[in-house]
């Protein structure tokens, strides 16, 4: 299948782009690497009048430390993260996540900002960056705002992006040396979309546990204080204290009615916790 016709605009700087986007109507789409939008265009699931290509914007292709955060431009690719072309503040966690997104040829063009804009609950960055406690920077011609990732994703394919706004960057906090990270997804084959995702960031020294249950039918469940999963207290032997019944109850409360689905999500969570403990 071939895409329906569209007009193409390629601004060369961010301000021009924002001005264009501010004028855009509902039939305009923004493209970066095009690895999500491309298939949909080819299948004619999406038929925009105009596509604005932001992949050339240098402002969105940088990564630098800003205090305790790494600021990653929206057009940095999964491959850039995988290959270590950006600084590592997560002790390899992001690199491992990136290297398992789709396939190499896709990662060389797919971008972190594009993936988040798409707001797919099964996408790796949606859950993993929520797990890492990252924030997202949204910019429009009118200004800029920052949101925690979990507040940005509002549902399946739904985000807090307002008309005229684009994802400018992701701000990832530096992972503490004592933190334990686990990230597991259930796929039937490599590169397939995930049926369940779990991300855990546990720091026994600080007695904190952050847990994400993702690839649900809607936005991920983000537990910024997940101590309830570990008997109410996060300690060095958290793995032994993991209580699957609590996880199951959380899923029920979130509306996951199917017992098989819950079983799979809990099993994936257990694996992520085991990985974090290893």
């Amino acid at each position: 299948m071939k895409a329906a016709a569209f007009a193409y605009e390629r601004p060369t700087d961010l301000n021009t782009a924002l001005a264009l986007i501010a004028k855009a109507d509902g039939t305009t789409k923004i493209i970066a690497g095009g690895q999500s939008l491309g298939p949909m265009l080819n299948l004619r699931l999406v038929e925009p009048d105009t596509i604005i290509d932001i992949s050339g914007l240098a402002e969105l292709k940088r990564a630098e430390r800003d205090g305790d955060e790494l600021v990653i431009g929206a057009c940095v690719t999964h491959g850039d993260v995988e290959d270590g072309r950006i600084p590592d503040v997560t002790r390899g966690a992001m690199q491992r996540v990136a290297s398992a997104i789709a396939y190499r040829a896709v990662r060389n063009r797919g971008t972190i900002g594009g993936s988040l804009s798409h707001a797919d609950p099964a996408a790796d960055w949606v859950s993993s960056l929520s797990g890492l406690g990252a924030r997202i920077t949204l910019r429009s011609a009118a200004g800029v705002r920052n949101l925690p990732i979990e507040n940005f994703i509002t549902g399946a394919l739904e985000s807090a992006l307002q008309p005229g706004e684009i994802v400018e960057a992701v701000r990832v906090p530096v992972m503490t040396p004592s933190a334990h990270w686990g990230y597991v997804k259930a796929c039937r084959k490599i590169g397939e979309f995930a049926h369940a995702i779990a991300a855990v960031l546990i720091d026994p020294e600080r007695a904190t546990a952050r847990v994400v249950l993702g690839a649900l039918e809607t936005a991920p469940i983000v537990l910024s204080d997940a101590s309830a999963l570990f008997g109410g207290r996060v300690t060095g032997d958290f793995k032994q204290h993991f209580d699957a019944r609590v996880a199951d109850a959380i899923l029920i409360k979130a509306g996951v009615a199917n017992a098989v689905d819950r079983h799979i999500h809990v099993a994936v969570l257990r694996r992520a916790i085991n990985e974090a403990a290893a």
Binding site: P39, L43, K189, I190, G191, E192, F193
Partner: peptide
């Protein structure tokens, strides 16, 4: 109706 739904085994499978 796409190869994302109709899963063909790849090298790792």
């Amino acid at each position: 109706t796409t190869l994302a739904d109709y899963l063909l085994p790849g090298p790792a499978e």
